[in-house]
Design a protein around this nucleic acid. Structure first.
Lengths: 230, 230
DNA sequence: TGTACATCAGTGAACGCGCGTTCACTGATGTAC
DNA sequence: TGTACATCAGTGAACGCGCGTTCACTGATGTAC
C-alpha cells in the first residue's frame, strides 16, 4: 500500500508519548527479517535496519549502544522463540521417547532452515563474558537432554545421556550448515536421516530396522517452522 | 628481519621474467594465512591480501578476476591439502575399521579447528553452477564413505552405509561449528565424543562399552593438524 | 483558560574509514637487427 | 657490438560506495502555574 515503493521508501510514524520503547521491538524484528532474507549476518547493518524500519539511522542509538548489542538482543529474542517452538513440537509428539526426540530434532533443523541468518547470529561466536554468563540457548539444550535421559531410562544427570544429547545437538547443527553450504550434494531425505541416525544412536538394542523403514509422518508443526518475519 | 615493521611494511621483490605465476601462489597462501588468523571470511579483502604479500592491490587482478574467484582458488588449494591430510591419517591408523573411521573424523575436526577461516570458505555457500560442476570436497567424503562401507561389511554403494557416512560427516561439521561458537559450554572431551558416537552409530551389535571406556590414543598426526600458514 | 517550559521521540548533515575497481603509467629484461 | 623495441611484471592515483558514529538540532506533547 506504499504509493511509490522505490522512490520514497516507507517512513515510520513516530511513537506516541510514553511509547518510545515500541521502536526497540520494531528494530529487532526488522533486523530479524533482514537476517532471514539474506542467509548470513554480513548483510545486516545499522543503515539497512533503519531503512527497513523507516527511521533515521541515528535513531537506533536511542535503544542500542552499537550493532553488537543490537544483534545480542536479536539473539535473545530468537532463542526465546526457538525454545518455545521446540517445546511446543515436543509436547504435541506421541508417547514414544525416540519419536519425541526425532520430532524435536526435525523441528530444530526446520527452524534453522526457515531463519538461516537468525540461526547464524544465535550461534555466532560468543560476544564477551557477559554472553557466557547468561546461559543462552541452554534451555533449548535442556529440553533435548531431558528427553534423551528419559529415552535411555537414565537419571537426568546421567553422563552417557548427556554425551548423546550433545552429539544429537551437534548432529543437527551440522545438518543445518552442511546442507545449506552444499545444496547440490545428493543428500538423503532430511526426516529419514534424522530419524534413522537418532535410532541408531539411542537404541541400546541392535538397530534391526530395515533400511528406510519405520518412517514417521512429520507433524503439522514440523512442516511449517515459523518464519520470524511478521 | 624487517627493520621497521610498522612504518614501512614488507615489500615483495618482483618475480623474474617468466616467473610471474609465482605471485598467484603467494596470493593464495596469504589469503589462507589471513583466514586462519581471523576465524571468519569477512576479514579477508583484496587490500588486506595485497598488504600481506607486499604488493599493490591492483596486482591481484593480474591473476584473478575478482575476490570470489580468488577465494574459489583458495578453496581448491585447501581441499587438496585437506584430502591429503585425511588420507594420510587414515593410512597410518590400525586395522580396526571403526578405529580408522574414528581417527579420520578426529583429523577432520582438528584440521578445521586449526584453520577455521579456511574451513569456513571451503564450506561457504556454493558459488554458482561452475562450483557444483566440479565435485569439490567429494574426494574427502569418498575417503570416509568407503571406510564406513568396509566397517559394515557392505558394498561400496550400499545406501545404508552411505547414509551413515553422510551422518558422520554432518556430525563432524557440527562439532566444528558448535564448539567454536560456544567455547564456554561444558563440552565433553572431543576424541571421546567422536569415538563413542561413531561406535554407537556403526556397531550393529549392541554397544556394550562402559561409558568412557575403550579410549583410543590419538595418533601423532591427529594431535598436530597442519596449520596452512607457512 | 492561556502560556511558558520541560521532556519525549526522534532527525539530518557531516566525519573518516576500508573497500572493490578503473585507468594510465613504469621500470626492468630480453630479443631482433 | 650496439641499439631500438616489445614484452613482462607490476605500480599509484583516483573514483564512488556503504558503513559506524558524532553532534547539534527539531517538532510534537504534555504539565505547572
Amino acid at each position: 500500500v506504499d504509493p511509490s515503493p522505490t522512490t520514497s521508501p516507507h517512513r515510520r510514524r513516530p511513537s506516541r508519548r510514553g511509547e518510545g520503547a515500541a521502536l526497540r521491538d520494531e528494530i529487532i524484528e526488522a533486523a530479524t527479517a533482514l537476517l532471514s532474507e539474506s542467509n548470513d549476518a554480513t548483510a545486516v547493518s545499522l543503515r539497512a535496519i533503519a531503512r527497513r524500519v523507516g527511521i533515521a539511522t541515528t535513531s537506533i542509538y536511542l535503544h542500542f549502544d552499537d550493532l553488537a548489542q543490537l544483534l545480542e538482543a536479536v539473539s535473545v529474542a530468537r532463542f526465546a522463540e526457538f525454545a518455545a517452538y521446540l517445546t511446543d513440537v515436543r509436547d504435541r509428539a506421541g508417547p514414544d521417547p525416540i519419536d519425541r526426540i526425532s520430532s524435536t530434532l526435525c523441528a530444530y533443523v526446520h527452524y534453522a532452515q526457515a531463519n538461516p541468518g537468525a540461526y547464524a547470529v544465535m550461534f555466532s561466536v560468543d560476544r564477551g563474558p557477559e554472553a557466557q554468563a547468561q546461559p543462552i540457548g541452554l534451555n533449548s539444550f535442556r529440553v533435548l537432554a531431558d528427553e534423551v535421559a528419559a529415552a535411555l531410562d537414565a537419571p537426568l544427570d546421567d553422563p552417557q545421556a548427556n554425551l548423546l544429547a550433545v552429539s544429537l545437538w551437534t548432529f543437527c547443527d551440522g545438518l543445518v550448515h552442511l546442507r545449506a553450504s552444499r545444496p547440490h550434494f545428493p543428500w538423503p531425505d532430511l526426516e529419514h536421516q534424522i530419524d534413522y541416525t537418532t535410532r541408531r544412536l539411542l537404541n541400546t538394542a541392535a538397530t534391526d530396522l530395515p533400511p528406510g523403514g519405520r518412517r514417521q509422518q512429520p507433524t503439522e508443526a514440523e512442516q511449517a517452522a515459523p518464519a520470524t518475519q511478521h
